[in-house]
């Protein structure tokens, strides 16, 4: 397994264009935005400096911002799109380049697919971790330049519960990434094309989001507003719900969506996510194990 993982890691990192434009885009974009909007702009413009001084800086919020955004609904659906493209390259690329035939005979297929999931998931997590650090460092730099307080102080912070929150958010993002990677992998196995996998995987995300609107309309038409509650079975809602429980201590009300009442308890959302994850990962592994690798 270690060798399959090492090979996959080197291979994906070797695709510098994909890594640069689809994975490192987040920390780079965060850095550019920070430098331009939060540092350069206030340094050069007095009015902006005044505005910034009035905005409190919290490194805990800065650190968690990207994780919150990734796990929220519908924001996460759209923020994950560059990662979907990267996952599409990772899975469908092997078919399109005709390279499965080189590696499939020498490793167990289950290990190959697992290594791919892990490496893709870890690279995405690393990108988000970098983004998170860039944002926190940006806050610190802004505070130093503008001479404003940078809090909270460590003594005022319940470090244990903060770290627990961070770990849970990271874990949640990892689960969300693996779920997205699983359906991208399934689509890649059938389409064997990077572009088709990308379009269809993004399509699945949009359909998932659009289904809530569709259910809302349908509920109104059929005069059954509760119909929208069906959305609680989707991975996106449950990611948002777990995030909401972790961050706010209450379940997600789906942004106050009309007719939505079924706020799931934390344990049920975790269970639903695990079922999705197990089903999709298992399905991918079984399908790949039985698949003919033809050119």
């Amino acid at each position: 397994m270690r060798s399959a993982f090492a090979a996959e890691w080197r291979k994906l990192l070797g695709h510098t264009k994909a890594v640069s434009f689809l994975v490192l885009i987040y920390p780079v974009a965060a850095l550019v935005i920070l430098l331009l909007l939060q540092i350069l702009f206030p340094v050069l413009v007095e009015r902006a400096r005044e505005m910034m001084r009035e905005m409190p800086i919290s490194w805990t919020n800065d650190l968690l911002w990207i994780w919150n955004a990734m796990n929220s609904f519908p924001g996460g659906t759209f923020l994950r799109m560059p990662f979907i493209a990267f996952i599409a390259i990772g899975f469908a690329g092997e078919y399109q380049w005709g390279t499965w035939k080189n590696i499939v005979p020498r490793q167990s297929r289950a290990r190959l697919i697992l290594a791919k999931f892990l490496v893709l998931g870890l690279l995405i997590l690393l990108s988000l971790l970098l983004t998170s650090l860039v944002m926190a460092s940006g806050g610190w730099l802004r505070a130093a330049l503008l001479d404003i307080p940078f809090g909270p102080a460590l003594v005022d912070l319940d470090l244990g519960s903060f770290l627990q929150g961070v770990v849970l958010q990271i874990l949640l993002t990892f689960v969300g990434t693996l779920i997205v990677a699983s359906y991208a992998a399934l689509i890649a196995m059938y389409s064997r094309s990077i572009v088709a996998t990308l379009l269809l995987s993004v399509g699945v995300g949009i359909v998932e989001y659009a289904s809530s609107l569709l259910l809302l309309v349908l509920g109104q038409v059929l005069q059954r507003p509760n119909l929208v509650n069906i959305i609680v079975v989707t991975p996106s809602y449950n990611l948002d719900n777990v995030r909401s429980w972790v961050v706010n201590g209450v379940g997600s009300s789906f942004g106050g969506f009309p007719g939505f009442t079924a706020v799931l308890p934390l344990w049920l959302s975790v269970l639903i996510l695990l079922v999705w994850l197990g089903g999709l990962l298992g399905g991918t592994a079984v399908l790949f194990r039985r698949q003919d690798i033809t050119s």
């Binding site: 060798s3 090979a7 080197r10 291979k11 080189n102 490793q107």
Partner: peptide, 14 residues
């Protein structure tokens, strides 16, 4: 060379 390295690692024979 990198291709060979990756293939060898996948096959546990690097």
């Amino acid at each position: 060379r990198k291709n060979l390295e990756i293939l060898a690692r996948t096959g546990d024979c690097y």
